[in-house]
């Protein structure tokens, strides 16, 4: 049996298959449906300082390219998250990663400290795609200087591994990635959803209550794969691929582009078995290729072609 384990600092994962933030809630909702034993880590739903009601419905719209969602970061807020959701999630047999979203630098720091303090939390992911409250020229996710400040402050508040989840919306994702790395990020997640919308022609209105939302699923795979390719060439910390992963081969594409691990989100909706099927598929491929672990695949495509 090949060894699928990978690590991001002290975050040790049985398999490179992580569950993406927001798609499995606080984990417990999927108890009995997802084989958490095959999962590297569960990234919990992004939590903010104050509870958030989220956007008005409809919040979902399926398109030919993938899924549009406009949840609006509905969450119970950090206090209830730590009191109620975390104890439930900690029963699950996989390490937990807290995803935090701040409106400004101070909030990110506060959230990183509060979540990082808890022993149930193995690592902290900064969701810099959150709507930010400050009025600035650039939104946070596109602004390398601000991202650096956020990561520096969060870094001083916790010694747990710090993942920074980048947005493909940023014009220059590589610069944001490098800024996050220099500021002390232990890994970069590439990346979040792309903006999108659909209109119901009969109703003459947007299909989402919020008009626009984030596109996930199949359409995101080639987009974020190219970003993983670019980012992993420009940084030395591990990169985690996210977007459209549904099969073991999709995961391997990200790995061969330079990722150490992947996150699975939308695919869980159509099949809660997807994470464990991806993990077992990876194991089979390793066996077929006579490999002991995943590391020889990381960035392999670069050695074979391209730049």
């Amino acid at each position: 049996m090949p060894d699928l384990s990978v690590a991001i600092g002290s975050l040790r994962m049985r398999t490179p298959v992580m569950l993406a933030s927001g798609t499995v809630g606080y984990g417990a909702e999927y108890e009995g449906l997802i084989d958490f034993g095959a999962v590297g880590a569960i990234v919990l739903k992004t939590v903010t300082v104050q509870p958030r009601e989220g956007n008005r419905p409809p919040r979902l719209c399926e398109t030919e390219a993938g899924l549009l969602n406009a949840i609006g970061l509905e969450n119970v807020g950090i206090e209830r998250f730590l009191e109620e959701e975390l104890p439930r999630a900690s029963r699950l047999p996989a390490p937990l990663v807290a995803s935090v979203g701040g409106g400004d630098v101070e909030e990110f720091a506060e959230l990183a400290r509060a979540a990082g303090e808890r022993e149930e939390i193995a690592a902290v992911e900064l969701n810099i795609s959150c709507p930010n409250v400050e009025r600035r020229r650039l939104p946070l996710w596109a602004d390398p200087d601000r991202v650096k400040e956020v990561v520096v402050e969060a870094r001083t508040e916790t010694s747990k591994p710090l993942l920074v989840k980048l947005s493909p919306k940023a014009g220059d994702v590589v610069s944001v990635a490098q800024a996050a790395e220099r500021a002390g990020a232990d890994a970069l997640v590439v990346g979040n959803t792309l903006p999108g919308m659909r209109i119901d022609v009969d109703a003459r209105a947007p299909r989402l209550g919020n008009a626009t939302g984030g596109l996930s699923g199949p359409a995101l795979l080639p987009v974020n794969l190219a970003l993983v390719w670019e980012v992993s060439a420009a940084v030395t910390v591990p990169v985690v691929g996210s977007g459209g992963v549904r099969t073991a081969d999709h995961a391997l594409e990200y790995v061969m582009a330079g990722a150490t691990a992947v996150q699975v989100g939308t695919a869980v909706f159509s099949d809660p078995r997807a994470p464990s099927l991806i993990a077992s598929g990876l194991a089979r491929t390793l066996e077929r290729d006579g490999l002991e672990d995943v590391s020889p695949y990381v960035g392999l495509a670069r050695k074979r072609g391209g730049r």
Binding site: P58, R59, L67
Partner: peptide, 14 residues
């Protein structure tokens, strides 16, 4: 309502 997870995890069907 349109649903994704069906189990209360994604908050999509409110």
């Amino acid at each position: 309502e349109i649903m994704a997870c069906g189990v209360g995890a994604c908050r999509g069907c409110v």
